[in-house]
Design a protein around this nucleic acid. Sequence first.
RNA 1: GGGCGAUUAGCUCAGCUGGCAGAGCGCUUCCUUCACACGGAAGAGGUCACUGGUUCAAGUCCAGUAUCGCCCACCA
Length: 924
Amino acid sequence: MATESKQTREEMPKAYNPAAVEGPTYRRWEESGAFTPPEPPPAGKLADGQTGKEPYTIVMPPPNLTGELHLGHALGDSIEDLLVRWRRMQGRPALWLPGVDHAAIAVHTLIERQLSEEGLSRRDIGREAFLERTWEFVRKNRARIAEQHKRLGDSADWSRELFTMDPGPALAVRTIFVRLFEKGLVYRGNRLINWCPGCQSALSDLEVDHVDEDSFLWHVKYPLIDMAGKDTGEFITIATTRPETIMADTAIAVHPGDGRYTHLRGAKARVPVINREIPIIEDEAIDPEFGSGALKVTPGHDQTDFEIGERHGLPIVNVMQPDGTLNEEAGPYAGVDRFEARKRIVADLKAQGLLEREEPYRHSIGVCDRCGSVVEPLMSEQWFVAMSKEYEKNGATRSISGDALKAVSEGWTGPSGKTTQIKMVPERHTKVYQNWLENIRDWCISRQLWWGHRIPVWYCEDEHMTVAVEDPTKCATCGSTEISQDEDTLDTWFSSALWPFSTLGWPEETQDLRYFYPTSVMETGYDIIFLWVTRMIMMGIFATDEAPFEWVYFHGTVRDDRGQRMSKSKGNGVDPEVLIDRYGSDALRFKLITAGGTGNDQRLEEPRIEAARNFANKLWNASRFVLSQLEPGETVPALDPSQQAMLPTEDRWILSRLERLTGEADRLMERFELGEAGREIEEFVWDELCDWYLEIAKVRQRSDDEVSPLPVLVHVLDACLRLLHPFMPYVTEEIWSGSGDLRGHLPDPGSELVMTAAYPAPADAWRDEAAEREIGLVLDIVRAVRNIRRERGIDAGTWIDAYVVADGAMAKHGPAIEQLARVRPLRIVANRAAAPSESVATAVLAGALVVLPLAGLFDFEAERAKLQKQRAEEQAQVERLETQLRNDKFTSGAPAQVVADVRERLEAARGRIDGLEARLAELQ
RNA sequence: GGGCGAUUAGCUCAGCUGGCAGAGCGCUUCCUUCACACGGAAGAGGUCACUGGUUCAAGUCCAGUAUCGCCCACCA
């Protein structure tokens, strides 16, 4: 037996302590330069781009600068870091691109909240002061956020922070805006947009949430009037959910085929309260089934009505001001808030006898996703991107949404000649993406907020427009120097959409851009597929004529332990730092990655994080044992598959199993089945390596005359640490190159850090079916003995006699079986007659019979009952398998391997039945 | 109104290209044996929501039903 007291053992505490390891390990990575991003090769080398080590670029979502780091980020960060580490270990120069910009939404909201606590609004303090406050916040919190991300294993520092929070010049953003403008794809127009009275800004369709609200459907009678404008005494009833907008009505519409209203064709009605005369018109959009079949048309406050209005040339009346109060068009209600006005007008209509009835009604209303205010459709002058408009480029007719659709559906061929078909994981999101693009409307990109990139448009006193990348000094039309920039800023998602290439220096033809773009993987949550992914693809193709990435990996949502979505308002958000303090970031990462199916939502289950921590500890202790067997400075010899035949069976077994695992892990990870890969690695380490191979190796370590298991042990542990490193970076690094220093015992480590060591590549050199079968039987024998012990109530610690009737090959496994099953003396005999048959408990296996003399503990009836039960089960199985094999369609149709497996199982079952029969005969 | 998920052990969930139903926690019994009690050993526990279909073979593929959840949508 090797000497016990070893340096490594003293350095490695008995339990893995993440808190003591993570900080120093992170610093070691930093100091080693391993985080330094790969340098693009010099210009001349780039033309082919395929040097056998194509770059691998991961796109990541921005750090949340509010400091409220949550588990969604933890999951995304974990996956991204895993992918980067894995690819770099494979020798591919992976780069992780950081993003920052759209955290602006969060910062902006936070500052506004602070202001409102002080009783101020954004407009009270002015743009300058507002921006100063946001900057102060960012400066103060940035370091803290960075620290939090480090603890998650987030390696954002790998990348150059080329993108900046500075909403100033932003070359890429302005360039795109100008180019879109030049193609007529960005335009300013007065249109019905979503207006948030809370934020006092325009919103895109995507920033409006729909929620159900219990309200009423008010049936209002509009007096009919004759040609002279006098009331006829008759009424037409309309149904509305928005009585406060009747002052903006410019028509009443009915369905052309609606017989109830044919007599009113060409008639007019009078709007209550303000007594405006409006026509009764016919339009196909009206549903005769709804309400009375007549609709009040309010083009200034409803999208459908706006479209009806356009068809019939109706005037547009706007009764509302940006803050949600009614304007002078509303007559008696001018200056009243919209909700108050609704109450008052309903009361007034009732008083005038014009309210036919009030019907309780549940319908959906739009609210601002940031502040929760009810959104108003309002006429407003805003900037838009034309999503479907056709334009010419390089002789081809294109459109923004059409190109984006093409990139996913059939593939997009860029100037490089390479065709990229963007693939999504899970695949189901592809259809959602396509469906959205097929029905897309123009994108409102201007915001009346002060955070973000200002629209690069200047106006002179004569309202001439100057659109430019660089700040102009005079009007492009009249030369006036009295120009001012548009007050509005761009939708933060407009900037974010441009981010992968603005990060890489676009529009300059930088080496970074040429080498790392298009990127490989965009990793993000499925909740922002429309906000971000679609826009990145659209803008990416427009800007560079290349699809921006090849894969989109969507992770799921992390819910709380009751399955509720985490949110600030519910107050159920969980700070990952608390969990990291408790279990370590490796444990949190491992749980997040392995807990669910690819892209599925998962719950935060603390017991599961604890289990992951326990796994880290298991790995730690197994390593501690292996290292304790090595002398300081002792290097084990390298393993060569050509020596396979010289190795003991169990060595060939574990190496064969390891190779199987390596192949599986590689296959799964290439397909982004990261969770399954992690689970399989864990299973191998815990079950096969720790529970079996290590125990067998101990037996060999204690006897001097055998081949040492140490080279194999070290080799397998090394491979496991490498395989596991992307999943559990800290603990693996600590064992490999830290206090464990496994590296120091390797014949050819090839790297200072496991982080930069080579990832195990799949191969078949060590595969050995015979060894797997042979050791499989050894394990079965040990399990059988343990099982009988438990059934007979024999303590696990008590040594008992045992016989194993088996092939002579089992003899060499005697010592292992003895130790693992705690049987001594163990006699391995060639035939049944050589073992006792009186007062013995038996276990019948396919290739062996286990016989345990029990003397006083023997229970005749229990033994017979057990054997009979097993015989019945085996017979049922034999019948099933025989039926299957009698079926010609099976034997001819199924793959040969499947048929062979069935035959083998049938033979094994028959063998066991023979053994059971023989044993039952003895018991007669 | 469309679309998409989910339905598997007591609970929370895996199960990839169809080929003897799995994990974690919990439960039962035993073990502090010199890597690990953040551990070890042996167990109990499933008509894979339901109904049809395809197939030699279905938890897995197809169609439909039910329940739950999510996304999208200009029916007032």
